[in-house]
Design a protein around this nucleic acid. Sequence first.
DNA 1: GTATTATACTCGGTCTACGAGTAAAATAAC
DNA 2: GTTATTTTACTCGTAGACCGAGTATAATAC
Lengths: 405, 405
Amino acid sequence: MTDRRRASAAVAVLRAVHRQPGIERAAATRKLAMTSGLTTETVARLSGLGLLSEHPVPPTGARGRPTTALGPHPRGPLVAAVVIGHETWRIAVAQLGGTGLAHTQRPHRRDPGEVLTVLAARLRSLRRRYGLRIRAVAVSVPGTVHGNRVAQAANLGWSDVDLSVLWPRDRGARPFLAGNDATFAAVAEARRGSAAGSELMVHLFMEAGLGGAVVEDGRPALGATGTAGEFGHMPFGDPAQPCRCGARGCWNTAIEGAAIARMLNQPPPADEVSYSRQVFAAARASLIPGAPPRAELAVVQAVARSVGTGAAGLANALDPSIITLGGLGRDLLDIAGGQVYPAYLAGLMQFRRTSPPPLLPAHFGGDAPLVGAIEEAFSAVLTDEGLRTWSSNRRPRSRPGRPKT
Amino acid sequence: MTDRRRASAAVAVLRAVHRQPGIERAAATRKLAMTSGLTTETVARLSGLGLLSEHPVPPTGARGRPTTALGPHPRGPLVAAVVIGHETWRIAVAQLGGTGLAHTQRPHRRDPGEVLTVLAARLRSLRRRYGLRIRAVAVSVPGTVHGNRVAQAANLGWSDVDLSVLWPRDRGARPFLAGNDATFAAVAEARRGSAAGSELMVHLFMEAGLGGAVVEDGRPALGATGTAGEFGHMPFGDPAQPCRCGARGCWNTAIEGAAIARMLNQPPPADEVSYSRQVFAAARASLIPGAPPRAELAVVQAVARSVGTGAAGLANALDPSIITLGGLGRDLLDIAGGQVYPAYLAGLMQFRRTSPPPLLPAHFGGDAPLVGAIEEAFSAVLTDEGLRTWSSNRRPRSRPGRPKT
DNA sequence: GTATTATACTCGGTCTACGAGTAAAATAAC
DNA sequence: GTTATTTTACTCGTAGACCGAGTATAATAC
């Protein structure tokens, strides 16, 4: 039968090392409730496979035989992460633990063909350089992603773009994941950011509009078609306001750049992300003592109240242990936390107010989608299946020495 | 290490039989991707343990050695389910597959002490009658449940009531689960109702207010504190309307009995559930051709639009494969489907409209919480741990014959 | 009757993890 | 300095679950 087991001890150890590089053997043994014998076997096997390395730890002064620290192997598995932003693209290669080995960032002109051609070339080059060490690729896009296609990316002006050209399938069938930037950002916060270790978190990612994700034990809720997390299209707004999505009263109509422009009696901006950033900067400037009051501040405060109320509604419905605000949401808390928090508390059901889920700024800024993409790529690698594939790739050269001629 | 495996083959077979009693051995073998040898071993073991029974199947006329059908064992494990409703309580005992062996329903006077005393006595009696065959108990309450306590149950007038008195812990530590009726109703629909087999469903359960749950692969999303699913307290309503929960603009303020009374310029009803039912009945009556138009119909239609719009918002955010409407929601679709569906479609993001998640009436009516409670109780039983407990309980009498004197 | 087909059963082998016992490498006590 | 204590690592026999190849069984088809 197709392997009915959960993560084997080997995968559990790899995941523990990925989550916390440098974790000590003895600590991992306890945390995973393993017997010391199993740890010995497992670590020996994983080291032999080139999956992790052991290092001595500096003496602690405590009694007992010293343990060792577990870290990524210098020739161990890697993942590639690609982030297509509204002005630049980024590529990174990361090893176990999430630390990067390579990183490139370039501006682009939003032409899908052009961008994908350049990125495909970069990925080919990485493939040549790292070979089979690259075990998975994740691509983040600021838009709606269905399978490997970008259905719609408003801020890029893309629609129905096939991303699978970036990573031709090879015999190894290495995982290729495409996803929404807000979802990846949420994963980043849940695994390594403000919500690290949380069982159930909600991330609200505010850039042009509002996106995000529910993340349970580090796994994002992707929905039936992979398009969950469009929180900006819940009817938390004014029912009279039409939204670009075709509905009315979407939360986004109280938050996104076009909404801010409307409230400021300005024409709809061409680049909403940059526009919102400017308005936020202006609002922030008027906070400086003695600075003249500006209309931008009042608008940002209105947005803040809307975000607070909506966050409370999500807390009521989903009962998360924590909510994080990313992207411009971090600035929002900074500039108008005095509006966000009261609105949040007021929107919570009475019984939730005694210990409300913390509403915190995200830990990551612009790196969030990249970190999340790396995490998701590793999630696809650190499985029993991934372990099998890695082992079988290495088996041919298991006997060290020159290849026979 | 503490058993790292997923459900063993034995548990997988038990779950398959529970899901589909009478499933054929050969079909189960294929469905679970088992080898025939493993099936032989597993079925023999489970039959021997008194967990399931084999029956010949009527000849199909097809070639090949005939298979057998798998069903619950006549002395196999049972669960008890208790449903406390706003006017009556119910208790049922069910065997593998969910079919009932016993069922009682009685009216009550909403006095917590009185109700719990009677229910505890009934459960003691069931315990005497069925002994250790009862492996778990689930209790459904129309209110907010934290652990084993009812935090608040508005329609019962209960607050801070401890349910654990119903089921004293014994050595076996048999699972005792308390939960919200809407959550159990959602599970019922997801496992055996309109959304049977769905990967990701959202259930909206409308009784006094709106509750429900997101159910993924049959498992309800309970939230960090077990109080997820309070969809009625998302701000989908008029921001000016105060809600009993302490917030403003809750969806409930457009839907619940008090809201309906307000819209009809009537005083707030004492029993909202009954009141809403009456209004719905009046609205339904005015649909009969030739009947005089009634204000109730317009109000129910307004409620319908609100439900449709909100359901769309949830679909946008959560991307379910199906949404079901239970409780009064079934009547709502019946009476005012012409308002629900257009509002639902209009509220969906453009790209979801080409194949929107079906919005269907629930399959179960008043039985939904009972069926869901039985399902959840069995979920707690059909695990490796549950299997171990059952086996160890039987081990003493493993050698058939009279007990030694 | 014999062939074909679908299913069930048998049994040796593998893999994972347990658990009890032993060894190693540090500090603490005398 | 030697011995005791503590913590961790390693060894090895055993148990359990499942695979997989081969065999047996019970039906229909020819």
